[in-house]
Design a binder for these strands. Structure first.
Lengths: 186, 186
DNA sequence: TGCGGTCTGTAGCGGCCCTTATAAAATGGG
DNA sequence: CCCATTTTATAAGGGCCGCTACAGACCGCA
C-alpha cells in the first residue's frame, strides 16, 4: 500500500542544504533557514533526513562523493605523490573559488570534522611513503612532516578563499608550496 | 561622589573571556557561559563592557596587544622580510601549541575578522616590497603572491593546531614553507 | 467508493539566547 | 547620619532554537 507522494526531490533538496551548511557552517545554519531555503516544512525534513545532526552527516557524506572528491581521486589516479599533490593544489585553487559554489572547503571549515581532515593527511602521507619505498623519493624524506605541510597549505587556501581571495592568489599559494617539494632521486 | 566598588578585576575577567572566545569562537560562546566562567553576573558584565559585540571587540583589541602581538613585533624588529617571516612561523609553531592557552590563533579562527587578516598579509607584503626596493630580494619577486603564501601557511598552522597537531608537526610546516622562500640577490 | 498509509502545513512545545527592569547592598561626601 | 551614586543579585522579557503533535490532503488497493 502506498500513501501520499513526497512533493520534493530528495537529492535536489540535499544539495541546497549542502550549500547552506557549506556557506555558513553547522551551528549558524538553522532548521528554519533550511525550510525557508528549500520550501520543505520541518516535519517533512525530519521525516526524510532525521534530525539536524543526521542531516548534516548525510551532507558530509554527499560532499565527499561530489564536491570534495577531487583530492581522493588525485591520490588514486596519479602515479606519484608529487603529481597527486600538484593536482590537488591546482584543483583546490579553482574549486575553492568556483563562483557557482560556496568558497573554500566544507570539510575544512567545520571544526567538528577533524577525523576527516586527519584521514586526508594520512592518505597523503601513505602516498609519499609509497614513493619513498619505490625509490622515487629519497629515503630521508620526512613523509609525515611533508604530508602535514600539504594539509596546512590546502587548509590555508580554503581559509583564504572564504575570506575572498582570488583564484590567482590561490594559484600563487599552490605554486609556492610546490617549490618546497623535495627533489626526487635522480 | 562614589558608589559601591566593583567586585571583580576588569583585566582578569577580560582575559578569562578572551580565552573563552578563543576556545569556542564568538557564536558558540554564550553570555551565560561567560557569567558562569567569570562569576560576574550579566548586569555587571554589561555595565563594564557593553553588549556582547562590544565585549568581543575589546577582546580582539586586547588579543592583538598580547597573545597575537608577536607577528607585528617580528615585522617591526627584524631587518629583512625573510628573517621576520622565519621568526613569525617559528613563534607561531610554539604559540599555537602552548599548553597554557587555547590552541591556534583567535584572529584566524573567527570568520568575521577578515579585515585583520587582510591587514596582516598586507603588512607582510610591505615588508617584502621593502626588501625588493633595497635590493635584498630580486626585482622579479612576486611580493603579493609570497605574502599570501605566508598568510596561507600561518592559517594552516593555526587550523592544524586547533585539530590537535603537535609542536613538532607545526615546526615541520614552518620549515617546509621557508624552503619556498626566494633566494636573495647574491 | 471507502480505507489504511504516507506526506503536508500549521502551530506550538520547552529551552536557551542576549539583554534589561528592579530592587537591595555598598560606598563616600555633606 | 543620610543621601546621591554605583555595583550587585535575582528574575524575567522577547526572540529564535531544534523538534514534534495534530489534523487535513493525497495516495494505492480492495
Amino acid at each position: 500500500m502506498a500513501g501520499r507522494r513526497r512533493r520534493f526531490d530528495r537529492e535536489e533538496v540535499l544539495d541546497l542544504i549542502t550549500r547552506a551548511f557549506w556557506r555558513a557552517g553547522y551551528d549558524a545554519t538553522s532548521v528554519a533557514d533550511l525550510t525557508r531555503l528549500t520550501g520543505v516544512n520541518p516535519p517533512s525534513l525530519y521525516a526524510a533526513f532525521g534530525d539536524k545532526k543526521a542531516l548534516f552527516a548525510e551532507v558530509v557524506e554527499r560532499y565527499l562523493r561530489t564536491y570534495g572528491a577531487f583530492a581522493g581521486l588525485a591520490l588514486r589516479e596519479e602515479p606519484t605523490a608529487r603529481a597527486a599533490v600538484e593536482r590537488i593544489l591546482r584543483e583546490a585553487a579553482t574549486a575553492y573559488t568556483d563562483p557557482a559554489r560556496p568558497r573554500g572547503c566544507l570539510l575544512l571549515s567545520v571544526p567538528e570534522l577533524v577525523a576527516h581532515r586527519r584521514a586526508a593527511i594520512d592518505a597523503v602521507e601513505a602516498k609519499i611513503r609509497a614513493d619513498v619505498a619505490s625509490g622515487v623519493l629519497p629515503a630521508t624524506t620526512e613523509a609525515h612532516g611533508l604530508a602535514v605541510f600539504v594539509g596546512a597549505t590546502v587548509r590555508g587556501m580554503s581559509g583564504l578563499a572564504r575570506d575572498g581571495a582570488t583564484r590567482e592568489e590561490l594559484g600563487h599559494v599552490a605554486r609556492a608550496a610546490l617549490t618546497a617539494w623535495p627533489a626526487p632521486v635522480p
